[in-house]
Amino acid sequence: MALKSIIYKADLSISDMDRNYYAEHNLTIARHPSETDERMMVRVLAFAIHASETLTFAKGLSDVEEPDLWQKDYTEAIQLWVEAGQPDDRRLLKACGRSEKVVVYSYSSTSDIWWKQMNSRLDRAKNLKVMNVPAATSAALEKLAQRNMQLQCTIQDGQIWLTAGEESVQIDLETFKAEG
Score class of each variant (00 low, 15 high):
residue 57 F to D: 02
residue 13 S to C: 04
residue 88 D to E: 11
residue 23 A to C: 05
residue 21 Y to L: 12
residue 117 Q to M: 08
residue 102 V to R: 05
residue 45 L to S: 11
residue 25 H to C: 01
residue 79 Q to S: 03
residue 126 K to M: 08
residue 119 N to Q: 14
residue 52 S to W: 04
residue 64 V to D: 08
residue 130 V to Y: 05
residue 89 D to I: 00
residue 130 V to A: 11
residue 66 E to T: 07
residue 67 P to A: 14
residue 121 R to F: 09
residue 39 R to P: 05
residue 12 L to H: 05
residue 19 R to F: 01
residue 135 A to Q: 01
residue 123 D to F: 08
residue 104 V to N: 02
residue 31 R to S: 01
residue 83 E to F: 12
residue 54 T to W: 02
residue 107 Y to A: 09
residue 104 V to W: 06
residue 16 D to K: 05
residue 54 T to M: 13
residue 44 V to A: 04
residue 66 E to H: 06
residue 122 L to Y: 00
residue 24 E to H: 15
residue 137 T to P: 14
residue 28 T to Q: 07
residue 129 K to W: 04
residue 82 V to E: 06
residue 28 T to E: 10
residue 101 K to V: 09
residue 119 N to F: 10
residue 55 L to F: 02
residue 66 E to W: 10
residue 73 D to T: 06
residue 76 E to G: 07
residue 126 K to L: 11
residue 138 S to C: 10
residue 118 M to V: 02
residue 118 M to P: 08
residue 54 T to Y: 10
residue 140 A to Y: 11
residue 113 I to M: 10
residue 25 H to Q: 10
residue 15 S to F: 00
residue 23 A to I: 00
residue 24 E to S: 14
residue 38 E to V: 06
residue 107 Y to I: 04
residue 17 M to I: 00
residue 72 K to I: 11
residue 64 V to E: 12
residue 11 D to I: 04
residue 62 S to D: 04
residue 66 E to M: 10
residue 52 S to C: 06
residue 142 E to T: 08
residue 137 T to A: 08
residue 54 T to I: 03
residue 93 L to N: 12
residue 9 K to M: 10
residue 54 T to H: 15
residue 34 S to H: 14
residue 13 S to G: 06
residue 139 A to T: 14
residue 65 E to S: 14
residue 78 I to Y: 06
residue 14 I to D: 05
residue 47 F to D: 01
residue 67 P to R: 05
residue 82 V to R: 07
residue 54 T to P: 06
residue 20 N to T: 01
residue 101 K to M: 04
residue 74 Y to M: 15
residue 31 R to W: 02
residue 109 S to K: 15
residue 62 S to R: 12
residue 11 D to S: 15
